[in-house]
Every structure is written in C-alpha cells, then in structure tokens.
Nucleic acid binder design. Structure first.
Lengths: 152, 152
DNA sequence: TAAAACAGGACTGATATGGTACTATATTAG
DNA sequence: CTAATATAGTACCATATCAGTCCTGTTTTA
C-alpha cells in the first residue's frame, strides 16, 4: 500500500496540535491529552521531531515543546523524514552499496528519480495546509503535476 | 523510509525481463534463471501480476507468461498496485471506516490528496522507461513538477 | 532540595513480510 | 489416453520491523 508508518501519522497530528497554540510551550503530557494518544507514544514522537529540529524542547518544570518555525515553512516531507529517515522507494535510492544486486541491476538511477519525484510531491504540502480541514470539495489534481520524462 | 516492498521490487525486475523478449512466452523457471531469483519467489510475483492483468499466463507444457500490452503503456504505479494494492499513504486514504480516529481527525481529505499526488508521480513513469538504463547523467527534476495547492 | 519535564536507550509483544511448500488444475507431446 | 510440465491457489513458518512501554539519567525551577 506504500504507506507511512503510524508513528509518522502521529507526528503529523502532534505537529498540527502544536501549531494550534502559536509559539506556546506545551508539555508532552498536555499534547497527549489533546490528541487522545498515550503519553509514551507522544513523547517518542516529540523526541524524534526535536532531534530533527522541527520543534524546540525545554526541560525542567514548565518545560515542554514549541514550534519555532512557521507552519507554512514546514513540509509534510520534512516530518516524514524526521520519523522514517530519507524518502526513498528502494534501498539503492538512499546510497550506493546497500543492495547486493547493484552490479546486475540498472534500475538504480530510475528509482532515484521516482523517489525524488515522490519527495517533491510531499515537499509541496506544508504543515499549515494540513492544519486546516478542507472546506470546499476536493478538486482533482490537475495537469499541473508533471514528471520530467526519464532518459531525457 | 517510505519504501516499496521487496516483492514489488522483484515485480519490476521480472516485468523488465519479460519485456526484453517481446511477446514471447517465457516460463517462470526461465525468468527465475535470468533474474537470478528463486523460482518460488518469481512464481509468486507472476501470479499476482497475472491476476492484475499485467501479464498473460499459459498453462501446460510450453506454458509460461507473456506481456500482452506494450511496455510504454504500463506504469510503475500499476505494477506497485498489482502487488501492494492501492497506493495510499494512510488507512483513511483508501476508504472510509478503516481508521478509528476518523471522527476526530480532519486530515483525511489532505492525505487523499497527497496520496493521489504520489500516485500520479508514479503513473508518469512507464515500464519502457524503467527498462533501459539511463545513459546520460541524471538531470535533476525541474520545475515541471508542481502540486496543486491544497485548499484551493 | 524536591518535583516536573525532557533525553536516551532498552525491551517486548504484535504485525507484516518474505520466502517456501503443497495440492489441484490445465495443457500438450507422444 | 497418459504422462510430463507448467501455472493457480492456498497455507505455512521464520524473521524483521514496528508500535508501544518502561526505566534511568539530566536539566530546570519553584
């Protein structure tokens, strides 16, 4: 199904929630309550997000997390990458030497292209856009989406 | 990492191999030999591809598989879908009622959009393009790739 | 100094995946 | 007509990955 992991899904939820209170510091505890998820799970996600620099963490009493970048400048791709690592469809798209078939298989460059096309698709959607529900009926993606032809 | 499954990767390899002998019927055994993969694995993949209508199967002595559509008309997206099912990033992108958080979460429509953008990215690459190695150095995907803005 | 909150890592159970095997059915050569 | 060959369908198991939890240590402040 080519899906993101649940943890990544949670991460988006948490970021959306965090974004609702602009710049405020919120504890993992409070975030867990708001999102109706378990504290340990929320904590795990927040640690990963903090490590990736998507949220700022504050220790001690009254500590917690806050966003220090505007939601419009954070893409869905970044959040996914923070939790799952680089967006790549195959091992060989990440770096050379990971796949044993590399000598025989000449698909590597093609996969890299597809991966980066997919990454681009998700870089085009910001957290700000995820934050508000879509009010109007979904309009089909139009011909704006094109992929450069391979081998060109 | 947002990756496709190994089985899907195999499927592409097998399709590329099958495409090399235009229209000829090749047994799973022969395909396994050419791709240096195990017969049971190749068989499994071929069965899925046959069920999806991407290859034609022939039983009995001299049986095997053949492509009956030109490689240019088969997209990577189709092959992925044949093995993994619909291309969707989250449960809720597939259909209503799969996710317990559906009432609380208003991300569904956004996820559907992202999923279809990703799908489109892969629909744009044909098996024919995957079949030949890229000879010239990879040119970066240019600004041809755009995504319609959400909420628009 | 004690309480609150994050950091980091380890551990476990569940789930999904990859890979294999077995039985049934179809086809055709002889 | 029969035997050989090849796919169809299904079931199975081992393993890897993931989700979720917990524990210990560190930082901060009331």
């Amino acid at each position: 199904m080519l899906r993101i992991s649940k943890l990544t899904d949670y991460a988006i939820l948490v970021m959306v929630e965090l974004n609702d209170s602009h710049g405020e510091v919120i504890s993992a505890h409070a975030l867990a309550a708001h999102t109706e998820m378990e504290l340990p799970t929320v904590s795990k996600v927040l640690k990963l997000l903090a490590k990736a620099g998507l949220v700022r963490s504050f220790r001690g009493i009254n500590g917690g997390y806050s966003m220090d970048r505007p939601a419009g400048s954070i893409s869905v791709a970044e959040i996914i990458a923070a939790i799952e690592g680089p967006i790549a469809m195959t091992e060989c798209s990440v770096e050379v030497g990971l796949c044993s078939q590399e000598e025989v298989c000449n698909l590597r460059s093609n996969w890299r292209r597809i991966s980066s096309a997919v990454a681009r698709a998700m870089e085009g959607v910001s957290l700000a856009e995820m934050s508000r529900p879509m009010r109007r009926p979904v309009r089909q993606l139009g011909p704006e989406l094109k992929i450069a032809t391979l081998n060109s």
